[in-house]
Design a protein around this nucleic acid. Structure first.
Length: 325
DNA sequence: CGATTTTGACCAGCGC
DNA sequence: GCGCTGGTCAAAATCG
């Protein structure tokens, strides 16, 4: 019925705003009462985030303001701080086109237990999650190629799919000519799909670290090809390769290099850690960032919203909620 | 030669 | 139930 539904790009105010206000902070989804979405426009990685003059909605900074815990949690979720001691509950979500409603459900837990689904299995242990990753699957799955055993193949695939679960996702927009943004981690591309109504394909990447299940998807906005939409899914369970080498000076902006502990720095650091090296490469530096979170009464003022725009259909950053006292 | 990318096929979920 | 779409697999190709 609704073509619009199937074509986020055509109706999604997020994209609409991006298209028309690419040089300014963008506020979107005014009609979502229970959730907020923030999009940042950062002129330069070294610039503070206080450049939001007219945030009708909660900004990322606001979201984290006054709550280091929130920030730390977020950091953990992104594993920027390279501490993976915490286990973040994976998103429960059986359905793809989930709206805010389901998001809320997932949020409510961040806690060890999950509401109603089988997530409990994987949510309870990081290790288990690994098994959801393609790599593990690969290991488990016997190579039937030589036998040409199609049935076995199908069965194994099916099993795997059953176990698959959604993990917290974190997405942001970056204005860059480079699709695969440098974020300090190593990624292996495992798929590419054409995006409906867009000339630009969506690429799927998986962290190359053996036990890491983090994935990311990268696609370019067809309305504004200069915008790269990057969605991270999952949590790194290892140190950032770049960080291990020292400071990742080759890819991180000065502001970040100045801080030694992300937990003590501003959210900006968190963002800049994810910024593409493109900033050093002369690319446009405007960055749009938005985080998605489920609705949560406890976080009314700190919610970030996840619009259902293609890639971010069921983003549930449970980490945001986690640290609420 | 190992790691990574490419690419067609497959599967699950969802809307109709 | 069918078709569409997103996500993933895995063999082949390519890269370093």
């Amino acid at each position: 019925m609704s073509n619009e539904k199937e074509d986020p790009y055509n109706y999604d105010p997020f994209y609409y705003n991006i298209q028309h206000r690419t040089n300014r902070p963008v506020s979107v989804f005014p009609f979502f009462n229970d959730n907020n979405l923030s999009v940042y426009n950062q002129q330069a990685p070294t610039q503070s985030l206080q450049g939001f003059d007219d945030p009708p909605y909660m900004s990322f900074t606001d979201c984290l303001h006054g709550s280091v815990d929130h920030y730390n949690t977020l950091s953990r979720a992104l594993n920027v701080s390279c501490s993976s001691s915490e286990v973040i509950s994976p998103i429960e979500d059986g359905s793809k086109k989930t709206g805010a409603g389901e998001l809320s459900a997932a949020t409510n837990e961040n806690l060890p237990s999950t509401p109603n689904s089988s997530i409990s299995n994987s949510s309870s242990n990081d290790g288990a999650t690994e098994e959801d990753s393609g790599k593990i699957k690969k290991d488990k799955q016997p190579k039937e190629s030589e036998d040409g055993d199609g049935d076995a193949k199908k069965v194994s695939k099916t099993k795997k799919k059953e176990k698959r679960q959604k993990e917290p996702r974190f997405a942001f927009l970056t204005k860059s000519e480079i699709d695969n943004l440098e974020d300090g981690y190593r990624w292996r591309k495992y798929g590419q799909k054409a995006v409906k109504n867009s000339p630009y394909p969506r690429s799927y990447y998986r962290c190359t670290s053996q036990k890491c299940t983090v994935k990311k998807r990268v696609e370019r906005s067809f309305q504004d090809p200069s915008l790269v939409i990057t969605t991270y899914e999952g949590q790194h369970n290892h140190h950032c390769p770049a960080t291990l080498r020292g400071n990742a000076t080759g890819m991180l902006p000065p502001s970040l290099l100045a801080s030694t502990s992300i937990g003590q720095s501003f959210p900006q650091d968190l963002l800049t850690r994810l910024l593409p090296a493109s900033n050093q490469q002369g690319d446009q530096t405007s960055m749009f960032y938005h985080s998605l979170a489920p609705q949560n009464q406890q976080l009314q003022q700190h919610q970030l919203y996840s619009p259902d725009y293609g890639l971010l259909q069921d983003l549930v950053p449970s980490f945001i909620h986690k640290q609420q006292p």
